[in-house]
């Protein structure tokens, strides 16, 4: 299991990386390496050139920009996990990131690497979907911004053209006092989830749900939102029957199936996890609304 031969490039700037990416034949971008390196070792991929983004400092870091939190694509999961800014403004991401692999892989794995790998049950794309993240893509000619819904094209297929590099993602935090929950089911701790669910919830002064996001990973080819479930909660007091109805919507989403994990099982998990995540999000939101039963 030794990687095939390739030429290695370690650009220092994004411009340099873009130039390499657009001129070299058949390049692969190397981010944290936690997915690409196994693929190389198994010889599932054999690129002529590997462009290592780990020395491009401008792609790394977490900052506030107006209302948005901006996370560089090469920001390591470890940095997100321990970021006070993320904990304060993006508690859903802070919670989800602890489900990503193991400490030893989070130390090198990057959020951009995960978004571009786009495993259907990965946590970070799911959070990006739940929070309507916008992805800034550096192109040879400049930049373009793509909402997560458009970025996740299909199974492990991001909306990236040859020569483009994901530079950062921008997330607008939800209002202070919102509720959140991230739950997933995997056979072992640290495995890719079979199904994961992210729930965000804002309550109005009367304790009714005024804003809802429910997203599923591991069910479809890409992480996806469940508008029917969101609609079912919106404007309600998020009572038991509302939660059950929303969870039932999650069980009706078209699911991928394979001999090991059939579609019906993914749907069942979606329902179970949703029914558990909504009350957890509600409890956090209710703490602020103070009026919900």
């Amino acid at each position: 299991m030794k990687a095939p031969s390739f030429r290695y490039h370690a650009p220092r700037t994004l411009d340099e990386a873009l130039s390499l990416a657009s001129t070299l034949p058949g390049p692969r971008l190397l981010a944290g390496g936690q997915s690409l390196m196994p693929m190389l070792n198994f010889r599932l991929v054999a690129p002529q050139h590997v462009i290592d983004l780990n020395r491009v400092a401008e792609l790394s870091g977490i900052r506030e920009d107006g209302e948005d939190l901006v996370i560089g694509s090469m920001t390591r999961q470890r940095e997100i996990e321990f970021s006070p800014l993320v904990q304060a403004r993006l508690p859903l991401l802070a919670e989800a990131i602890r489900w990503v692999g193991h400490r030893q892989t989070r130390n090198r794995g990057t959020i951009g690497g995960s978004l571009c790998h786009l495993d259907p049950s990965a946590e970070q794309p799911l959070v990006a979907m739940a929070m309507d993240a916008r992805l800034c893509i550096a192109t040879p000619g400049g930049r373009r911004e793509v909402p997560m819904r458009s970025f996740a094209v299909d199974l492990m297929t991001p909306a990236l053209e040859d020569g483009e590099i994901l530079a950062e993602l921008r997330i607008a935090p939800w209002a202070a006092g919102h509720g959140w929950a991230f739950l997933e089911f995997a056979r072992r701790h640290g495995d890719y989830a079979i199904v994961a669910v992210a729930v965000l919830l804002e309550l109005d002064a009367a304790g009714n749900a005024s804003r809802v996001s429910i997203a599923l990973g591991g069910v479809g080819a890409t992480p996806l939102r469940v508008p029917a479930a969101e609609a079912r909660l919106l404007g309600t007091r998020v009572a038991g029957t509302d939660i059950e109805a929303a969870a039932a919507c999650c069980a009706e989403v078209d699911a991928l199936g394979d001999p090991q994990v059939p579609a019906w099982y993914r749907q069942r998990l979606a329902r179970t996890l949703c029914a558990r995540a909504i009350p957890a999000a509600l409890a956090r939101a209710a703490g602020h609304a103070g009026s919900n039963p």
């Binding site: 390496g33 390196m37 290592d52 400490r103 030893q104 892989t105 090198r108």
Partner: peptide, 20 residues
């Protein structure tokens, strides 16, 4: 697993040239 700049990392998931 080894420590690279103080934090644990899989030695098989990192190129030696990246440790420069």
């Amino acid at each position: 697993t080894v420590l690279v700049d103080g934090v644990s990392a899989r030695g098989c998931l990192m190129l030696a040239v990246q440790a420069d």
